[in-house]
Amino acid sequence: MTKACVIGWPVEHARSPIIHNHWIKTYGITGSYGRELIEPGKVGSFLKNLRDLGYAGCNITVPHKEEALAALDDIDPTAAALGAVNTVWLDQDRLCGMNTDVPGFLANLDETVPEWTRRTTHAVVLGAGGAARGIVYGLVNSGVETVTVVNRSLDRAEAVAAIYPGRARALAMADVGGLLPRADLLINTTSLGMKGQPALDLPLDRLKPDAIVADIVYVPLKTSLLVEAEARGHAIVGGLGMLLHQAVPGFEHWFGVKPEVTRDLYDLVAADIEGR
């Protein structure tokens, strides 16, 4: 029986088991996917013992994405560029890893707004954390001409933008209002709008009518940002699709089947988020 898991500290909140166990059942695979609570500082030893523990691989959630990188033998270019890994698998005796957040975000955009690359010359990314770094990387490598990183602390935005000189630039959140009329794609990577957090307050009336609005937050399924954007007629992209699409590569590595992100899966995870 093939086994995989997600590791984190904490890890009880992770919805990965819902996704992977749904696919295991759908494709008739003899396998399982669970959770492992791993303390910071012990990630390397856990990964080195994956085979002895009976695992084919694992997902990595916060706060272990950077620590895990040091334990791996091979990493993909995205994980190397971002300094963070979220998917690990065994290849013979070698520990391999990749960062699937970036392709997960892009696949969600592709599915929801298939023509987004043609429509996007200038993207605005709100936030300057790990998620923002990954999304800026994905946008730049998808051919978006200009990416503006907006953050309350300008120095953090400048640190992200400096990775892509000539393609990315930085702006303080206080000045975002004047930027919105030039944005083709607006992406929130902050926790604002998440359940239990303050709403993201933006003057969306300044956005051009055909601008796309995305939010990587998926609890709630539709943040106040997306509710307002949709009411104004904008194409919107929710965060749950990113969570589902980023799970695909790991499942394929562990279980040998490339799974589909279906409406049934979306509804299953959405029901869990909404407590139904």
Rank of each mutant, 00 (worst) to 15 (best):
P114F: 11
A70F: 12
V113H: 04
N49V: 00
E12C: 02
G28K: 09
F105K: 05
I38T: 09
S45Y: 01
S16W: 00
G41Y: 08
L82D: 06
Q92T: 11
P40I: 07
W23N: 07
G28M: 09
W9G: 01
V102L: 02
L53A: 13
N59M: 06
P63Q: 14
R94C: 02
A56H: 07
T120H: 01
A80P: 04
D91Y: 00
E115Y: 02
T78I: 15
A84W: 12
A80R: 15
T120A: 03
V85H: 03
D91N: 14
I18D: 08
A107F: 05
D93N: 15
G34E: 15
G31D: 06
R15D: 03
K42N: 15
P114M: 03
W116H: 11
E12Y: 05
E67W: 12
H13E: 08
G83H: 01
N21K: 04
T120K: 05
H122T: 14
D52L: 13
G97S: 11
I60R: 04
N49E: 14
A68V: 11
M98E: 15
S45T: 15
L37S: 00
H64V: 13
R119G: 02
A68D: 11
T121P: 00
P10A: 12
T26G: 00
E66K: 14
L69Q: 12
I18W: 10
A71R: 07
A79G: 13
L37C: 02
I38G: 00
K48H: 14
P17K: 13
H122N: 14
G31F: 09
D101W: 05
L69P: 09
Q92L: 02
W89S: 02
W116S: 01
D76K: 02
T61E: 02
I60N: 09
W9S: 15
G54Y: 09
T121L: 12
L109Q: 09
V6W: 08
P17T: 10
V62Q: 12
I29P: 06
M98G: 10
R94D: 05
T61M: 02
D52Q: 14
H20R: 03
G57L: 05
D101H: 11
T121D: 14
C96N: 14
T26Y: 01
P114V: 08
R118P: 01
A56W: 03
T26N: 00
W116L: 10
A107M: 11
A56D: 03
C96W: 05
S45V: 15
G41L: 04
Y27W: 06
H20Y: 11
L72W: 00
E12T: 08
H122K: 09
K42V: 05
N49T: 13
D74Y: 14
V85A: 08
F105R: 01
W116F: 05
A70I: 00
T121K: 15
E66C: 08
G97I: 04
T120S: 05
V85G: 04
L69N: 10
L95W: 01
R35N: 07
Y55Q: 04
L72I: 10
I19W: 10
N86S: 07
K48Q: 14
M1H: 12
L106A: 01
S32Y: 03
L72N: 10
Y55W: 13
V102F: 03
Y55I: 14
P114Y: 10
I24D: 05
T87N: 06
Y55D: 10
E67T: 10
G83W: 04
D52G: 10
A14Q: 07
R51T: 09
D74F: 14
G57E: 03
A80V: 01
M98F: 01
H122Y: 11
V43R: 02
G57T: 07
A80M: 12
R35H: 09
